[in-house]
Design a protein around this nucleic acid. Sequence first.
DNA 1: CTGTTAGCGCATTCAG
DNA 2: CTGAATGCGCTAACAG
Lengths: 330, 330
Amino acid sequence: MTIYDIAKEAGVAASTVSRVINNKPGIKAETRLKVQELIRKYNYIPDAAARGLVMQSTRMVGILIVDIRVTHHIDSAFVIEQELTKRGYCCITMSTGPTDERKAEYIQLLEQRRVEGVILMGSMFSTDLVKKSIQEHLPKVPIVIVNGYLDLPNVSGVLVDEDAGVEHCVDLLFSKGKQKIAFVLDAVSPANLKKRQGYIDGMRRHGAANEQILVYEAPESSVAGGYEATKRILVEHPDIQGIVYSIDLVAVGGIRAAYDLGFRVPEQVSLIGIDNSLYGEICMPKLTTLDNRLQELSETAAGILREGLEGNVQSRKLMLFSRIIEREST
Amino acid sequence: MTIYDIAKEAGVAASTVSRVINNKPGIKAETRLKVQELIRKYNYIPDAAARGLVMQSTRMVGILIVDIRVTHHIDSAFVIEQELTKRGYCCITMSTGPTDERKAEYIQLLEQRRVEGVILMGSMFSTDLVKKSIQEHLPKVPIVIVNGYLDLPNVSGVLVDEDAGVEHCVDLLFSKGKQKIAFVLDAVSPANLKKRQGYIDGMRRHGAANEQILVYEAPESSVAGGYEATKRILVEHPDIQGIVYSIDLVAVGGIRAAYDLGFRVPEQVSLIGIDNSLYGEICMPKLTTLDNRLQELSETAAGILREGLEGNVQSRKLMLFSRIIEREST
DNA sequence: CTGTTAGCGCATTCAG
DNA sequence: CTGAATGCGCTAACAG
């Protein structure tokens, strides 16, 4: 079923059908009605690709995520998708996987689909290879990185001051008399390195010496990973008083490890996560967490992309402020 | 940049460029090389929409989900997306929201994009309005419903025997001497009604009278909803011995409610969830849960859709078997 | 081995 | 108010 089929049966030209579909003025009410009736009769809907070809506009945007199963990423994608769908855009959301090569490839896939805008979810996209791929394949398309940044004229970044936030976490622990504090990293990403730096700066500011800076890396970004890392800390430093984790998911494994090894939380050791995720509300005790403003971050990113889609493509860099949500684990 | 631009600079015809791009045989090695060089020079990639128009194939599939933030739905979508992306399809994943009208509208959106296959995630899509919309808009496109079914020649369903599974949960509780058992429903969906039926059948089989069938509805599908419902049960029936929940997320709220009200789990009251989700591993005690085989369900759905995409469109109905994973809450 | 031509489904001139 | 012609970027059939 095409406009020609409709046109033939209505006894008009295809252009007339096109005009009716697009609500263009200057059509006799009678013919308009006849055409509309046929459109309804056959449930006809114009082909978006064909229309896109002539209009030079696909009304598609791409959302690249390392792994859509990660809750804070998909939560953010949800917010952005809602906003863009409302404005008539179709979002193609893809899981790239962790490797840089794949991320670059997926940018190429998006070029192939001629997307008009791109969201890159997470600091993991702030890499040189991604930058190069953007320059080669999407040099003009508005791109927004959520919690990341690349210095390119068509790329914007919305960031959170997670480094300062972690520093405040350290402050909070010190204010409760906890001075021996460790930091657990779930993976090496720009965002996590910033968090680690916040930990280091906070500790230094409180007069910690080098050997009092305790950074551990979880074997994987999971509950089990947090469990393992925490067990190691608790064994190697039984007098530890506080642990800050790069994400809630891993912190939640830490809570279990502390319980299993007989450490009382928060009396003996205080635990803090990052993300303000559902995980932190489910565990026992409930997790104190650094809220990195995912909702606002996503809304802001969607807003910037929307401006870009409307023609105002420029590079911007915004910063939001994190805050601590204190619950039962501190 | 189009094939014509490449062709002109290479001093050949557009069709020659097309042949090179598509690796067609019968091109002099010399010209092939020259064209390939220019393609690389300009990072040229053919427009998927234009190609789709002439090939009559978009290589796009749609994945409709009520809410992509629901973990078991997005986990399933991930598996399917991986499989289809690997085969060169581009997935457009959309959150429809809970209303029937929106679900029907989104099916229309997918028609507009001329998708070649559709995944409908969850039993919430087994409704008359969705069925009608499929008949009107996508009567020929292969469609697979994950954990749902519609009687249409182009629609397949992959289901889990969650009713029998819940019956086994009731059996498990009885085997531990727990006879006073309630069931909590997080929402009214075909799948949840099946689960409820399993509870009722199980109770009846163990000789329960009507007044011993205790079905509660959580005010919302969330931790808080499960908390509220459980509090009500515990207050109205302080001698309750077991509670089965329609999903882990809600069960996890129940664990907290039991703790707050001073009920010991599992000694006093045993709790069972459904989904085998991460939530159940995070909470304390860890949740016994009915594994509804999400992974296999998704793989099977992807497999059936793949067959449909390859031309073998037919209506099929498959059933997988759930199993109980016993942890600390029973 | 390669160029010419036509057409995929649509919107947009320009005539009338 | 409406129709015929053109082209968006691409592939395929047919010549040569």
